[in-house]
């Protein structure tokens, strides 16, 4: 990409699309996507159908809803109307049936292009872990792909495979859930990102209160609690890095 998102935002031909993806599950895609979407004032589109994803954190419960916006959007080819909430990003929620009804990658890609144009706001797409049709579809039109990198051997193995497969995508590796990683692992991440020429963004630490948090609003929504301030500062930096990606 030759233009940064800032430039896109000022008179680009469409608002930016940001994806969050990782080949390994549980490394922080949804949390990153949720917070960055909120920070960018973007609509969050949840392409992960599993429970425990971004739609759930938002408070969306498909079993209590008559409509399944994500499924209907693809059935009818229409841009879904995002749900709105206080202190959280606008949401295009996922649906448990989406896994079995994933459209082919090209249709997902076309749909995303259509959605950002019609919504006229940036879009952050959360994905199902690993390479599946909808994830590949989301990656196609993405201007930046947030890739959380957790300092654990299995995570780094999965990451290496992902970087290798997707070298030509605009990946943005975010060292994530960081707690004083050993030199060996820092070096490993450095080596693989250098080898594939992938930029590394600011790091986000591990916070023991995040996994047990039950509130649904964005952590970075005002007023930010004292406890959350360091996390929010780090997320701010990631959001700024996304905006300036490729600049």
């Amino acid at each position: 990409m030759s233009k940064s998102l800032v430039e896109w935002a000022k008179g680009g031909d469409r608002p930016p699309i940001v994806a969050a993806a990782a080949w390994k599950g549980g490394d922080g895609k949804s949390t990153l996507a949720y917070e960055v979407a909120y920070q960018l004032g973007a609509t969050l589109a949840d392409f992960d159908w599993d429970k425990g994803g971004a739609s759930g954190s938002w408070g969306f419960r498909p079993e209590l809803r008559v409509r399944a916006p994500m499924l209907e959007a693809f059935e009818k080819g229409k841009t879904p109307t995002p749900l709105r909430g206080r202190r959280k990003p606008d949401l295009i929620p996922s649906h448990p049936d989406f896994g079995l009804n994933q459209p082919p990658p090209d249709r997902v890609a076309d749909a995303l292009e259509q959605w950002v144009r019609e919504l006229d706001s940036p879009l952050v797409a959360d994905t199902h872990p690993g390479g599946c049709d909808s994830t590949y579809g989301v990656l196609q039109p993405a201007d930046v792909v947030l890739v959380p990198a957790v300092f654990a051997d299995k995570s780094l193995n999965a990451l290496e495979g992902m970087l290798e497969e997707l070298t030509d995508y605009p990946l943005y590796v975010i060292p994530y859930m960081v707690k004083s990683p050993p030199a060996r692992m820092r070096k490993r991440l450095r080596d693989m990102t250098t080898r594939f020429g992938i930029p590394v963004g600011p790091a986000v630490s591990y916070y023991s209160w995040i996994p047990t948090r039950s509130r649904r609003m964005a952590i970075s929504s005002e007023p930010v609690s004292k406890q959350a301030a360091p996390f929010v500062q780090q997320i701010d930096r990631v959001a700024a890095g996304v905006m300036n990606y490729g600049a």
Binding site: I174, P175, S180, R186, L189, P199, V200, G201, P202, A203
Partner: peptide
């Protein structure tokens, strides 16, 4: 400097 540089620096400080 990116996130990894920061982490290297922090580790050096700890050492």
């Amino acid at each position: 400097p990116d996130g990894l540089d920061d982490l290297d620096q922090e580790a050096e400080g700890r050492r």
